Simulated assay, not measured.
Amino acid sequence: MKKDSGDPFRIGDLVVYPAHGVCRIEAIEERELCGAKVRLFVMSLNPERMTLMVPTDRAASAGMRALSDPELAEAAMKLIGGRSRSKRGIWSRRAQEYEKKIRSGDLMQAAEVVRDLRGGTDDPGGSYSERQLYELALARVTQEVAAVLRTGESVVRSRIETAQASRAA
């Protein structure tokens, strides 16, 4: 697929958009918005069946990036199996920090959230918001690692569960 004039991505590329996770570029279009012609990346998110349009000249400032490399994906998987950071401080501040990490679009930061909140889904003391943040971080890590390693999300989830179980034992 041919690269369009100066655009960093091509049609068909998988990219990470921080607010939504892994997306596929379906088209690069020029549209008129508010009287100005704007080039847009038209991207799809399969799980949500959602379409995003991002101006090509604002993609980098919005944090849109190529998928991580396989070494970083494996490092994220290893991080998830590591020791959790202590859960000190006020939950609302920690929750804001976790959400900021997830929405950063950085694979390693999302993996840290999965590692640190992994008890939240099984722990009856875990709050609803803790479980929601855990699931969001888990989905982001799973999507990107599966895309990078060219495997299914269920395979990646299984690897994560195994890493978490071996750490808990």
Rank of each mutant, 00 (worst) to 15 (best):
G12C: 08
R103M: 14
V155E: 14
P55F: 03
R94H: 05
E135C: 08
D57N: 15
R131A: 07
D7A: 11
A147C: 02
Y134D: 04
D4R: 14
S127H: 06
D106T: 06
R31V: 07
L136H: 10
G120C: 04
V42R: 09
R150Y: 00
N46M: 09
D4E: 14
S44W: 02
L72G: 12
L14K: 09
D13K: 07
E26V: 12
T51V: 12
E144R: 04
E153V: 02
S84Q: 15
I90N: 09
E26A: 06
V113F: 01
I25K: 03
S68D: 11
A146H: 01
L107A: 05
A163P: 08
V141Q: 02
R118I: 03
V54R: 03
G152Y: 05
V145T: 11
E29P: 06
R31T: 04
S61L: 12
R58G: 05
L52R: 04
L33N: 02
R115T: 06
R24I: 04
R150P: 00
M1Y: 03
Y134I: 02
V113S: 07
K101H: 11
G126V: 11
G35L: 03
R94S: 13
T56R: 10
M77Y: 05
S84N: 01
G120Q: 11
V16T: 06
E144D: 01
L72R: 13
R58F: 04
E32V: 14
S127C: 04
R118Y: 15
A27H: 08
R93E: 15
P124Y: 05
D4L: 12
T121Y: 03
L138C: 13
L133G: 11
V38T: 14
R167W: 12
I28P: 08
S68Q: 07
Y98S: 07
A139G: 03
V156A: 03
V38H: 03
G119R: 11
V141R: 04
A163L: 08
G89C: 11
R140D: 05
D4Q: 12
A62G: 00
R167I: 00
L136A: 15
A60W: 00
A27Q: 15
P8I: 10
A60P: 00
K100L: 08
R93Q: 14
S154F: 04
T151E: 10
S5Q: 11
I90Y: 04
A139E: 13
V148M: 05
